[in-house]
Design a protein around this nucleic acid. Structure first.
Length: 756
DNA sequence: GGGTGCACACTTTTT
DNA sequence: GTGTGCACCC
């Protein structure tokens, strides 16, 4: 079995063969993290130290879980399915399905995705007559999720003012509504299974005795609840640490069997999800609370050339409070990093197109070229240029298969078969396709349901009066569909599409062709789902396949659109690029305000520093490249319908000059300090503004002799640089970054500005 | 009930 | 600049 360990480098080997104790593996970008994780599992099993049943491996994405399973299947002659490998949500779902009664859920409970949750909250707020100006439903969802991720039920949330009190009331009502409808949202999956185990000593003990090895991928992305969940399963240190916001009702685990060992793999430098609750602090807490003795750094990088790594290391070095890591490679330094400064976003896009064309001419495949940007809005200009040039491209991040309207409609019918009390599903299709059930009938129905404290479906019998007949017909439709539940799933779906009138509806719609083919694809998806992981559905048993498929649809939204097989240029945000790698990488829009994003620079919520997270994001972006990295800047950019003028990103300054090769002329200007950047060590650090490029004839926006990037002098404010401008003639205003006085907008007609 | 038109906002995203 | 949500009208 030594072959398993062949070709591992020294730290990798050390990590894989650690004794069964808690361990924290700091795995840098491209350092073979997944390999270590899977080899560790294979090693534990093949050396007889662990049985497949004793393994619990947790990831964040389905993709990562699947990859782990595939690799393990290739390494081990055991049935991979007997191991618990999955996402936090997937594993919690599994747990709750197995113990639905103890968890207080109906057997066929449904899972609300974010969109479902939002519409559920909206509906609730309408029913409660809450002012949605004062309490935007989106923010309410965030509030609810944040509470759940802190382990707090509505009854446990402390509220001091009336505003907070009302939010808690809405949260409580939402909890009640979900319970009545038999649905759970994503955060609920976690919290519910946490509570299930923490309140059920024998059950907890059962799982603690079973799972002896817990392996966690992307540990830096865990939130507090996920950490508490892991800690409980591992029989870790008792709850109630002063810094731990989770309720102590999880109890004392000191009586638990000698705990499982947690093998956590993560990279604090790649923590880019604090905004959605991830807490890098979990890494330090884990180290301290579990008294972790084994901490191993994987720093040898197998992905990128040296210059790229040097740039990444130099950038991330500016972040204080790191656990510390420095990537290196045997691969040689490779090419310099190319930098291009364009006048405008359209020029930037045009340059990228030309560069891509020449790369393709040189034999590079488009699929190996990635075009990264900080925010989705930037893709438009790029797509426009690519489209005009006829270059095939694929944009990540659009609607995914199970999120499409027609698919959600079909799924809503299926959900009603599984659980007619699912009001979200009910409302989605009660009048789709149109069957004459208007707002008035629904209002009456909702009143009746409220009065009877029942679901909408159950209330139909109450409103047999006017409008009632169409409702009764709908109830009959649901009933009729339910009778077909014994059919094999693909046939059942086909039946639903027919009887519901969905298929006819889209056949009659002029743009309905694609939707129709998506609905057919849904049948295919169900068929392959059953083939892959279908339950041994016993005749008559209420549709285990159906429930499993619906959970699958909620938990795994499916592929992003666009042709998988084609050789297309890859366009995506830096966030979606995490975990991927490409031979050629363009990072576009490297401008102050965009990257780092202006909203993030001063953001210090979630206990994290926004600028540092932006810098980690830049680090992630840079480390995606294997051979060649391009950085580009646009001096002016169309954003929110307005032209904005930005300075080059400070991240450019953080890359050593000798690693950069400027493709556009560049004139060194005097360096000067701008507004102090907040720094968590309490010291004020001054950011040396990057030199602005030479003015090229004719192009940069001129305003009465002033232009972006120009050094100016003001009688009162002293020296500064023009960073932004708008208007013209007598309305012309410029934004100046003054050395001493900070950033100010000045009207050219009034202010006495002198060019320096 | 569905189509049109106007305000509005707008960082990142997986489950 | 573009998508979304809501009011209004036929």
């Amino acid at each position: 079995m030594t072959s398993l360990l062949d070709n591992l480098n020294e730290p990798q080997h050390a990590a894989v063969t650690l004794p069964a104790e808690h361990a924290l593996i700091l795995a840098g970008a491209g350092s073979g993290k997944t390999r270590v994780l899977t080899t560790r599992i294979a090693w534990l099993i093949s050396t007889g130290q662990a049985s497949p049943q004793s393994i619990l491996a947790v990831t964040f994405t389905n993709k990562a879980a699947k990859e782990m399973q595939t690799r393990l299947a290739a390494m081990l002659p055991v049935n991979v399915k007997s191991m618990w490998i999955g996402t936090f949500h997937g594993l919690c779902n599994r747990l709750l399905r197995a113990h639905y009664r103890d968890a207080g859920l109906p057997q066929l409970f449904q899972i609300l995705d974010s969109a479902d949750q939002l519409s559920s909250v909206k509906r609730l707020m309408k029913a409660l007559n809450v002012d949605d100006e004062k309490f935007p439903p989106r923010e309410m969802c965030q509030f609810i999720n944040a509470q759940k991720e802190q382990g707090l039920r509505a009854s446990a949330v402390e509220a001091w003012d009336s505003w907070a009190k009302q939010k808690v009331e809405i949260y409580a009502a939402y909890e009640a509504q979900c319970q009545r409808e038999g649905v759970v949202d994503f955060a609920e999956l976690l919290l519910r299974s946490f509570e299930l185990l923490s309140r059920n000593e024998p059950l907890l003990r059962h799982y603690q005795e079973r799972f002896r090895h817990i392996l966690v991928d992307e540990f830096q992305d865990t939130n507090r609840l996920q950490y508490a969940w892991l800690r409980m399963l591992a029989g870790g240190p008792a709850n109630g640490h002063p810094t731990n916001p989770l309720p102590a009702e999880g109890g004392d685990y000191s009586t638990a069997p000698k705990g499982a060992s947690i093998f956590a793999v993560g990279d604090d430098d790649q923590s880019i999800y604090a905004f959605r609750g991830a807490d890098v602090g979990n890494m330090r807490d884990f180290e301290r609370e579990f008294n972790v003795k084994n901490m191993i750094r994987l720093e040898q990088n197998y992905r990128s050339h040296g210059n790229i790594l040097d740039a990444a290391n130099a950038i991330i070095r500016n972040n204080p409070h790191r656990l510390g890591k420095n990537l290196w490679t045997h691969a040689g330094s490779g090419e310099p990093i190319r930098v291009y400064e364009a006048y405008a976003d359209s020029d930037e896009a045009r340059w990228i197109v030309e560069e891509v064309k020449s790369l393709v001419r040189d034999g590079h495949t488009r699929a190996e070229i990635a075009l990264l940007y900080r925010s989705n809005a930037q893709s438009r200009a790029l797509e426009h240029a690519l489209f005009n040039a006829g270059i095939p491209y694929r944009v990540y991040g659009g609607l995914r298969f199970f999120e499409r309207a027609e698919i959600k409609h079909a799924l809503a019918y299926l959900r009603l078969i599984a659980n007619p009390n699912d009001d979200t599903a009910f409302l989605r299709v009660v009048n789709f396709p149109v069957r004459g059930i208007g707002a008035r009938s629904l209002e009456a129905l909702q009143d009746a349901a409220k009065a009877a404290n029942s679901s909408l479906h159950a209330a139909i019998t109450q409103v047999s009066g006017k409008g009632g007949s169409s409702l009764t017909a709908f109830a009959q439709l649901i009933h009729q569909l339910s009778e077909a539940v014994h059919l094999p799933l693909p046939e059942l779906i086909d039946h639903v599409l027919e009887l519901s009138g969905l298929r006819t509806h889209y056949q009659n719609e002029k743009e309905g062709q694609e939707r129709l083919s998506n609905l057919d694809e849904l049948i295919n998806a169900a068929a392959s789902f059953i083939a892959e992981e279908g339950t041994v559905s016993e005749e008559g048993e209420l549709s285990a396949d159906l429930a499993a498929f619906l959970a699958h649809a909620s938990l795994e939204a499916g592929e992003h659109q666009a042709g998988e097989g084609d050789d297309a240029l890859q366009l995506m945000t830096v966030h979606s690029a995490k975990g991927l790698e490409f031979n050629m990488v363009f990072i576009s829009g490297l401008e102050e305000g965009l990257f780092p994003h202006e909203n993030a620079v001063n953001d210090t919520k979630n206990g994290s520093n926004g600028l540092e997270e932006e810098r980690r994001l830049m680090y992630v972006a840079v480390t995606r490249a294997r051979q060649r990295l391009y950085l580009s800047i646009a001096q002016s950019r169309m954003l929110h319908g307005q032209t904005r003028y930005n300075l080059p990103s400070r991240f450019l300054d953080e890359i050593p000059k000798e690693l950069l090769k400027w493709l556009t002329p560049r004139v060194e200007k005097q360096h000067f300090a701008v507004s102090p950047a907040p720094s968590s060590n309490g010291l004020k650090t001054f950011h040396n503004q990057s030199p602005v490029t030479a003015q090229r004839p004719g192009r940069p926006p001129e305003r009465s002799g002033f232009s972006i990037g120009m050094n100016v002098h003001h009688a009162k404010f002293g020296p500064g640089v023009i960073v932004n401008a708008e208007g013209s003639g007598t309305d012309a205003r410029v934004q100046v970054n003054f050395k001493a006085a900070g950033v100010k907008w000045l009207a050219l007609a009034i202010a006495k500005l002198e060019a320096v």
